[in-house]
Design a protein around this nucleic acid. Sequence first.
DNA 1: TATAATATTGTAATGATTACAAATTAGAAA
DNA 2: TTTCTAATTTGTAATCATTACAATATTATA
Lengths: 152, 152
Amino acid sequence: MKDMKRNLEDITNKLKNNNIRPSHQRLKVLEFLDNNRIHPTVEQIYHSLYDEIPTLSKTTIYNTLNTLIEAGLVRILTIEDNEVRYDIRTDTHGHFKCKSCGNIYDFEVDMDLVEVKGLNGFRIYTKDVYFSGICSKCLEQEDGAKIFDKVI
Amino acid sequence: MKDMKRNLEDITNKLKNNNIRPSHQRLKVLEFLDNNRIHPTVEQIYHSLYDEIPTLSKTTIYNTLNTLIEAGLVRILTIEDNEVRYDIRTDTHGHFKCKSCGNIYDFEVDMDLVEVKGLNGFRIYTKDVYFSGICSKCLEQEDGAKIFDKVI
DNA sequence: TATAATATTGTAATGATTACAAATTAGAAA
DNA sequence: TTTCTAATTTGTAATCATTACAATATTATA
């Protein structure tokens, strides 16, 4: 209970520190992203908050996310066309998408160590890494492995 | 002149080898991708070929690209939402998008050497790397550099 | 050349995102 | 607390990219 309250306080401060008014909707969106590290789509966020906030509009989700992105509190993930996702982690890390279950996993990668040819004289601001394949959970489902060898 | 013909022949064979009928439209799309390594959008391809093929339909561009992707002759790039691009290079390489001129550059990166934490037991099929920043050409335009430091 | 299978085209449908104006809410000042 | 102003939320309409679909055209081949 105490943790819950502190969490809400943290989220409120996070917004205030970035000159974003901590409205009910914004707090709920940011709280959802913080508690559900699933790189959700707009649809998922909207659906999940709709019960709590019956007047919620999808436009508000879009507005809120764009505000959060502008402030650098959220990153947009466009790992595949036709699905845009949002990530509350803004530190450098990679994303793995499982072709089977569709889940997106975070992984650690130190891109500073990677050697790159062809960008001499370029100024690099962001580095994104995106892998795809089959996650360990899906592979563990025995006959799953046999299927996946062919499907992809 | 000889080169042009050989090129067309190569492209035709490329399609035939993949059981894709070398129709006029498909040849022109593939030829355009081969001669213009700019990771074009559907709009760019359509616009560029429209003069040559006045009856061209945008649906054909989409159909053709999807066929080529399915055959593995073309890769789709979704480095940013709101713009999908297509790449004739299918070998592993990185992409750099310049925030200033919008151009996309290829670069060489050996992802096999990169250390990754958090994907134990995962089967990895594809690895994509996407950087963004300011390209050397834009940086060379002297006062440009000063502006870019702030803008991003 | 005739035939059957495949490709192209134009239009309509879909779906995600944004524009916009009206209604609501939040925060500061009295 | 009450009032006032600015910011936010909401619903609807508009926009844009992409796909569905059916009619037409083209290709490969006998």
